[in-house]
Amino acid sequence: MTGRVALVTGAGRGIGRAIAQRLSGAGCRVALVARDRDQLEETAERCAGPTTVIPADVTDPDAAERVHAGIERSWGPVEILVANAGAGHSAKLERTTDADWQRMLDLNLTAPFRFVRRAVPAMREAGWGRIVVIASTAARIGEPYIAAYTASKHGVLGLVRSAAAELARTGVTVNAVCPGYVDTPMTGQTVENIVATSGRSPGDARAALERKQPIGRLITPDEVADAVWFCVGSGAVTGQAINVDGGAVQ
């Protein structure tokens, strides 16, 4: 992988930072994308090799074109795309507004679609490419109070499967990694929401999330990065949804 050009969205913290570090440590040149420049700079400092920091809001309709074009000018086409940027939302169905619904679709489904669409032509022409979308166990099952989030993640898994089928003979693989509850700021926000709505203590709320996974703990960002690296390294694995959830979904 030495010298391969990789792009990681949502690279400012959490899972995205761990993925960027893994790719960089393997010799890739890594473009780091997120909204917060300071967080991206911190990720860059932790990477072992060349990086470029590109602040961008991936929900901007022009973001995919602008980000890819900038990388191409400096390094050439993106060869490894990890679409990691995402967010969650929790509310009862009747309290989920149109704005909540649209925000989940824009960030978790439409943005990955645009980045995948922009990356594919160069990968197809080169006869090699790796696309990994960070989905969720919510792409596999439904749970209460996360209808908008679940719908967006089910949708992105459909995108992955269709793209994988279309690109199967081109040397380009497309996979999804589906984490459970990971020890990240996003899960911290989930804990805060549970505390606010249930009156539980933060410790009890966190323990409830840990119990959702048979291994009895949260997943680490590095464990998600392991699964991404597996997808990047294999040319025979495509169209898959790889669960990293401690055995919760079988």
Score class of each variant (00 low, 15 high):
M1S: 12
T2Y: 11
G3W: 14
R4A: 06
V5D: 03
L7V: 10
T9C: 03
A11Q: 05
A11S: 12
R13Y: 12
G16Y: 09
Q21N: 13
L23W: 01
A26Y: 11
A26G: 13
G27M: 09
A31C: 06
V33Y: 03
D36P: 00
R37Y: 08
D38T: 15
L40G: 04
E41D: 06
T43A: 05
T43F: 11
E45C: 12
T51W: 08
T52P: 04
D57L: 09
D60M: 03
A63S: 00
A63L: 02
A64S: 00
A64N: 01
R66A: 14
R73Y: 07
S74H: 10
W75M: 09
V78S: 08
V78Q: 11
L81H: 07
V82I: 05
A85C: 10
H89Y: 10
S90H: 09
S90P: 10
A91E: 04
T96V: 12
T97K: 13
A99N: 04
D100I: 15
D106F: 06
D106H: 07
L107K: 00
A111F: 03
F113N: 02
R114T: 08
V116G: 04
V116M: 13
V116I: 11
R118I: 10
R118F: 02
R124D: 05
R124M: 02
E125W: 05
G129F: 09
T137A: 03
A139V: 00
I141R: 15
A147C: 15
A148W: 01
Y149I: 03
A151E: 13
S152H: 11
S152V: 08
S152F: 12
H154Y: 05
G155V: 08
V156G: 08
G158W: 06
L159V: 07
V160E: 06
R161L: 06
S162L: 12
A163L: 07
A164Y: 07
A165D: 07
A165R: 14
A168P: 08
R169T: 15
V172C: 02
T173A: 06
N175Q: 03
V177T: 06
P179V: 04
G180N: 12
G180W: 00
Y181H: 00
Y181D: 10
P185K: 01
M186C: 03
G188V: 14
V195I: 08
A196I: 04
S198V: 06
S198Y: 04
R200Y: 01
S201C: 14
S201M: 07
S201K: 14
G203H: 13
D204I: 13
D204R: 14
A205N: 08
R206V: 12
R206M: 07
A207R: 14
K212L: 15
L218K: 00
L218M: 15
V228K: 11
W229E: 10
F230I: 13
G233N: 10
G235T: 15
V237W: 01
T238A: 11
G239Y: 09
G239M: 05
Q240S: 13
Q240M: 02
A241P: 10
N243A: 10
G246M: 09
G247E: 09
V249M: 14
